[in-house]
Each structure stands twice: as C-alpha cells, then as structure tokens.
C-alpha cells in the first residue's frame, strides 16, 4: 500500500511539473494583463522543436535552449499582436493555437514517430533519494522536476517580495498609473509574455524530452488547456497553481487506478473525475459567496492604449 501511494505521488509530481511550467508562465503573463489562450499550441511547438534538436544533435542541453528560444520568438509575435496592435487576446490565443499546432505538425513531419537516442533520465539525488517514501517521491526524478523545485519558490519570491514583482502586480491592476510614473508598460508586457511563452515551451519539452523520447502531432493532448485553467484556479498565485496541478494530476492518476480497485464503473466516468474536480475546486476557491477582494488582475484582457487615458 505504501509503495502504491508513493508511486502515485511520484507520478502526480511528474504530471504536475509538465503543466506547471506553462501555468506559472501564464500566471506571470496574466499578472501583466495579457491572457494567452494558445498555450496548447505553444507547448506543441516546444515539444517539437526540442525533440527535433535532440534527434539531430543528440544534445539535450542544446535542445532545451532551442526550446526556450522558440518560446521567446513565439512570445515576441504574440506580444506584438496583443500589446502593440492591441488585438483581442482571446482570438489571438485561438489563432496561435491553430497556427502553432499546424506549424508543429508541419515542421516536425520528418521526425514523427521515431525515437531519439537520448532523453532526460531520472537522476536520483545521492543521499536524499534513499530517504524512505520521501526520497522516492521527490528525489528520484529528472531535471525538469528538480528545476521546478527552484522555479516555484523563486516565482513566489519574485512576485511578492521584489520590486520587479511589485511592478508586475501593479501592471495587471492599473497599467496607466505605471505609465504615468514613467515605466515602460509596453516593454514590461513584452517581457512577461515572452517569458510565459518560453515557460510554456519548456512544458512541451517535458513531454518530448523527458516523458518520452518521441514526437507526434498533437501529443500534448489537452495539457495546455489544463495549464490555462490552472491559472485562474490558482488565483494568480504560483503556490496554489502547484496545489492545483498536484490535485489534477493526482486525481487523473487515481482515476486510472480506480479501474483496478473499484471495477464495474465505466472507465470513462473515472476519466471525467479530474475535470469535475477542477470545476468543484474552482467554485470553492473563487465563488463569490466567499466575501473576498477579487484576485483577478483588473486589467486582464484589457487593451492598454495610451490615447484612451
């Protein structure tokens, strides 16, 4: 039973990490006031570009860097549309989703369905990994997981304890007041959108460089949408995003296990569990029957146009 639980927990961590990069990136982007609905497509581009590089060069570090570069470029394009041209963020996100899923399939055509020679393998951390239960859950993972252990505290610290994080929070609430103070609102938004896209491509790379060593069209299978949902669910706080991701991952893994432990229920109903749980959790955490100041960045999805000031 213990091994069962540890194994579910370890698996939930792996699952959570693969969506957390995108979700935390999107938290930054939305805190800056820009919503990106195209996460799924951008993840695919990340998965494809990373795999493509590793397939041709067998250099994992290079693949990781290429993935980030692709994310930055996509972010630049998205920021140009939404920040400079002030295009509607919802449509832009959908357009990116469609465009990127097409482009990833198109560019990745030559390497579809073939395995690469190398992938990121789990690295047990000496000492820590031999702690019973905890070691197995937390310290026999791969580099993406360990990196996430750093990303979580750093992102929380950045948002709540630094000057730049303070400006980020203000940016999503009231860009005009920052603009008045002489801060380049547009440059900040460009920066955060690009950062978010780079994080999203890393999420994609998790799937093609660590989960498997393989690329196939549409292989992210809806993870981008889950990451997107996680953002509002987390009330724009990375700490809650972590909880949400673990909850979603845990429940979906548990769902498959339930087929073994509680047979007789059609398996599709177990498949529905994580989605239903998300709705319930969303209602509990954000429902307005809890008298609280709304956490949603006030300027989210609002075009910022100096001339409207």
């Amino acid at each position: 039973m213990i091994s069962f639980i540890t194994s579910i927990c370890a698996a939930a961590i792996v699952y959570a990490v693969s969506i957390l990069y995108a979700a935390i990136g999107e938290i930054f982007s939305q805190r800056a006031g820009i919503m990106n609905l195209g996460i799924e497509g951008i993840m695919l581009m990340g998965a494809m570009s990373g795999f493509m590089t590793v397939y041709h060069t067998e250099n994992l570090l290079l693949a990781f860097l290429v993935t980030i570069l692709v994310g930055l470029l996509l972010g630049l394009a998205f920021a140009f549309l939404t920040v400079t041209l002030q295009a509607d963020q919802t449509v832009c996100g959908m357009a990116f989703l469609i465009f990127c899923s097409g482009l990833s399939g198109f560019l990745g055509k030559s390497v579809t369905g073939i395995a690469s020679a190398v992938k990121f393998e789990p690295i047990p951390i000496p000492g820590l990994s031999s702690i019973p239960v905890i070691g197995e859950i937390f310290f026999q993972q791969d580099i993406f997981v360990y990196l996430m252990y750093l990303v979580i505290p750093l992102s929380i610290f950045y948002i709540y304890k630094t000057k730049a994080g303070l400006m980020l929070r203000a940016l999503g609430e009231n860009p005009a007041s920052l603009d008045q103070a002489g801060i380049n609102v547009f440059a900040m938004r460009y920066g955060y959108v690009m950062f978010a896209c780079a994080m999203t491509t890393i999420s994609g790379a998790c799937i093609s460089l660590s989960y498997t060593n393989f690329w196939n069209e549409g292989m992210t299978g809806g993870k981008g949408w889950i990451a997107f949902s996680l953002v509002a669910f987390s009330r724009w706080n990375p700490a809650y995003a972590v909880l949400g991701a673990l909850l979603f991952g845990g429940i979906s893994i548990l769902g498959i296990n339930m087929q073994v432990y509680l047979p007789g229920v059609p398996s599709q109903f177990y498949g529905m569990l994580p989605y239903a749980a998300t709705v319930v959790a969303l209602v509990i955490t954000t429902g307005s029957f809890r008298k609280k100041h709304s956490e949603e960045p006030a300027a989210l999805c609002q075009k910022y146009d100096r001339e409207d000031r």
Partner: peptide
C-alpha cells in the same frame, strides 16, 4: 490479466499512467 483502459486512442499521459498502474500492482 489485469486490464486498464486509457480511454483515448493516443494520449502519452494516460498511457504512461496505465502502465504505471499495472506496474504498481
């Protein structure tokens, strides 16, 4: 033979989880 369904024709995650579930058994 213990059977586990992924309920998807192609889903890296669910297939991984299926295999893990079986291995855990």
């Amino acid at each position: 033979v213990q059977l586990v369904w992924a309920n998807s024709w192609y889903d890296v995650d669910l297939e991984t989880q299926s295999a893990k579930t079986l291995i855990n058994q």
